[in-house]
Design a protein around this nucleic acid. Structure first.
Length: 771
DNA sequence: GAGCACTGC
């Protein structure tokens, strides 16, 4: 069915419900067809320009979906206009200086003004809460209030499905509070993301009418506003897992609400099993006559309709459906598959810009590279829009940006212009951008994978799931009716998986297993997983934990393992911390681990890559990334974290502040473990690298005669990532923190070592092999 | 020889 793909010279982008069938693997095959997109976008621009003599038509057909309304205001403006390109006036880009100036102008025009925040008085808060009561009563969920309370009171577990905008996450905890369910313990609401926990708590505190941290609080890493008096507590799932280590029956809670259950993150999946077992244990204790124990209520909240699985897992719990408040979004699929979806997104964005009513455009892409290349293309073409048509302003957003750049997407477009947001998955759940009326969905994302058999992580472009595609579509209908342009056929949509594979089935499980063991669950293979991870994945993780001496021959947690589980870092790093006490370099170990806890402290906008690389030279250590990071931290401290210094040196100050938070926390944890966090090795930094080998001796490679590196255990040919300070350098032996397959097996966090160190670090593995 | 989506303690 793909034979004709190459023949599809996409001169016209036609949206309809009639198209080629694209099955899952073939989407990536299609995608894999290399389109040589040069940095300045010339190859693609030419392509579009060439096509400008043809007709492009948007043939708007409606997907028979519950979200689309026949009477949508868009239907009239639709099928008739087959005329985009001639009016687009697409031309070859002008001189780049001109364009930079224009771009700069925009940046200067719209700087956000900081609002002065006044601390409200309690009186004012009570009044605000009264005003909010009306709003609360107007929410769709309000009519279900009494039945929700009744069900939760009568049942141990309840599953609630609520569409976006139903208000379930803010209202249900309050209903349960008002009904007296917090009398014997706090109502906890877990979230997969920190910002959500904060914002929800703030909102609900306002509605309840008390300052944050009193009746309503939140608890996330580095920031706990909850108090003993908190009746409702929003928290990240990671915090809940931490609390389990010290309170195995979660006795301070009367109700646990697991929100966003459909996302199936590793941590919520672990929590499912944990709370289910805790509920049972508490019930058994009550039945044995323990008067001091209260029963635990479990509420699962999900946004996807398919909640049967949750219900089955929680003893066939009743499912309640709450409708949401979303505007209709009309879906338009392409008739033909789009081999180069970046180019198709470009054309579609201009079609929308010239034909459709005001409202911003959101384009979902897979990564920084795609985003930046499309940004350039849009800038080039937008220059040549006829004066009658307003400007089209590209706004990139992805996780690796510094926060000042990220904030820019929230600035409203100047009058008469239209923003086009170029986003990764970050805009699917993590960030809600206002004023979006149009979504362009490429149908792809980058997805972390894990091959348990060989223990290698990957990061590859894959088709999204149906629920992901629906989630993306929904982003167009938050404030008004919208349009969603899918750059794939309706048939290919039909062939997408219903839901993404739960994270627990495609990730490294070491950390999760160590947590389970530390909370007293010894037999992890028998743990009540909602979705069972593969046997080989479990075995591999158990083996690695054994190699790190966290488990003994019987698979039981050792003393070392118990200590490791206490640290809020992945097991190999925890091992490094423990080792650092013996090697007297705890200060340096804490610092380097903190630095490695963010993606990267170096910011590298592709436009200024050369400058950024040059700035980095100042900190570069010949021994590799670990000591380079340490040098950078020293320099950062010597200027007291000055923001301007960060900018000049291409250091991401947001990430750097996070590093400082982690360091502070690790210092506390080390003190708690009876270690001296100030113990330093001074200038003898070689010892730090040896210390890291205690956790990463399995991640080592030797230089081959042909100049490549080969991993010592596994014999894999691996490449040093270009962001590493050892990129292009040839050293006898190296150690790395991370290996991810993308286009190659790339390693990151790389340092040089002497092969003689290996037998000292792990005699069991290297003792005989090389002396 | 050239590049990492997202989230959490």
């Amino acid at each position: 069915m793909f034979n004709n793909v190459k023949a599809v010279k996409r001169k016209v982008i036609t949206f309809d419900d009639d198209g080629e069938v694209v099955s899952r693997p073939e989407v990536s095959k299609l995608r894999g067809e290399k389109v040589n997109r040069q940095p300045n976008g010339t190859s693609s621009s030419k392509h579009v320009k060439d096509s400008s003599a043809d007709t492009k038509s948007i043939n708007k057909a409606q997907e028979p979906s519950p979200t689309s309304t026949p009477a949508s205001s868009h239907s009239s403006s639709s099928a008739s206009t087959p005329s985009v390109n001639s009016s687009t006036g697409l031309k070859e880009p002008g001189p780049s200086t001109k364009k930079q100036k224009r771009q700069l102008q925009y940046q200067n025009e719209a700087r956000p003004k900081k609002l002065a925040i006044k601390e409200p008085t309690t009186e004012a808060m009570v009044k605000k809460a009264k005003d909010l009561r009306k709003h609360r009563q107007s929410l769709p969920i309000y009519s279900a209030r009494d039945i929700i309370i009744k069900e939760v009171k009568e049942n141990a577990c309840v599953v609630i499905v609520g569409e976006t905008g139903s208000g379930k996450t803010t209202q249900i905890p309050q209903y349960l509070l008002e009904s007296g369910l917090a009398a014997h313990g706090t109502i906890s609401v877990t979230q997969p993301r920190r910002v959500a926990a904060i914002n929800l708590a703030k909102r609900v505190a306002e509605e309840v009418g008390t300052p944050i941290g009193q009746k309503v609080g939140y608890s996330i890493r580095f920031d706990d506003t909850s108090s003993k008096d908190s009746l409702i507590k929003y928290m990240t799932d990671g915090i809940m897992l931490r609390e389990l280590l010290s309170d195995r029956l979660l006795l301070r809670y009367s109700v646990i609400i697991l929100d966003e259950a459909h996302e199936r993150t590793l941590r919520t999946d672990i929590l499912f099993g944990m709370v289910k077992s805790i509920q049972k244990q508490r019930q058994e204790m009550i039945e044995k006559g323990r008067k001091d124990i209260q029963p635990l209520k479990i509420v699962i909240m999900s946004a996807t309709l398919d909640a049967e699985k949750f219900s089955e897992y929680f003893y066939n719990a009743k499912i309640m459906y709450i409708s949401g408040r979303q505007f209709p979004v009309k879906i338009l699929n392409t008739i033909e598959p789009q081999p180069d979806y970046v180019d198709s997104a470009l054309v579609t964005a201009f079609q929308i810009h010239q034909e459709e009513a005001p409202g911003d455009i959101l384009i979902f892409l897979t990564g920084q590279e795609e985003i930046e290349s499309l940004e350039k293309l849009i800038e080039e073409y937008a220059v040549d829009l006829p004066p009658s048509v307003g400007k089209l302003i590209p706004c990139p957003i992805f996780a690796a940006q510094d926060s000042a750049t990220q904030q820019k997407i929230f600035e409203p477009a100047p009058p008469g212009t239209r923003k086009v947001i170029l986003a990764t998955n970050i805009a699917e759940t993590s960030i809600t951008i206002p004023n979006i009326r149009y979504v362009i969905d490429t149908g792809c994302h980058k997805s972390r994978g894990y091959n348990a058999k060989i223990g290698i992580e990957s990061l590859l472009v894959e088709p999204v799931s149906k629920s992901s595609a629906r989630q993306r579509m929904g982003r167009a209908g938050r404030e008004a009716p919208g349009l969603c342009f899918r750059l794939y056929t309706e048939d290919s949509f039909d062939q997408l998986e219903e839901d993404a594979i739960p994270e627990i089935k495609r990730c490294n499980l070491e950390s999760a297993i160590l947590s389970l063991k530390a909370t007293g669950i010894d037999n992890v293979t028998e743990f009540d997983f909602m979705d069972r991870p593969s046997k080989s994945g479990l075995l591999r993780s158990l083996e690695h934990l054994y190699a790190l001496e966290a488990l003994n021959d019987e698979g039981k947690l050792t003393e070392v393992g118990t200590k490791m589980a206490a640290f809020p870092v992945d097991p190999p790093y925890a091992k490094v911390l423990l080792q650092s006490e013996k090697m007297e370099c705890t200060k340096e170990a804490i610092e380097i681990i903190s630095l490695l806890s963010v993606d990267t402290i170096f910011s590298a906008p592709s436009s200024k890559r050369e400058e950024a690389n040059e700035a980095r030279q100042k900190f570069t250590s010949l021994d590799g990334d670990h000591l380079t990071l340490l040098n950078t931290l020293r320099a950062y401290e010597s200027v007291k974290g000055d923001r301007d210094w960060c900018r000049e040196n291409f250091i991401n100050s947001r990430h750097m502040r996070h590093v400082m938070d982690v360091r502070k926390q690790l210092i506390q944890f080390c003190e708690r473990a009876g270690m001296d966090p100030k113990k330093s090795c001074g200038h003898d930094l070689e010892i730090v690298l040896k210390c890291f080998l205690a956790g990463f001796f399995q991640n080592t490679a030797l230089l081959q005669p042909d100049g490549t590196y080969r991993s010592i255990l596994g014999g894999l040919t691996i490449s040093v990532h270009p962001s590493s300070s050892l990129f292009g350098k040839k050293r006898e032996a190296i150690m790395y923190n991370e290996l991810v397959f993308t286009t190659k097996h790339y390693i990151r966090g790389v340092s040089a070592l002497e092969s003689a160190w290996l037998s000292q670090a792990a005699p069991k593995y290297f003792g005989q092999r090389r002396a």
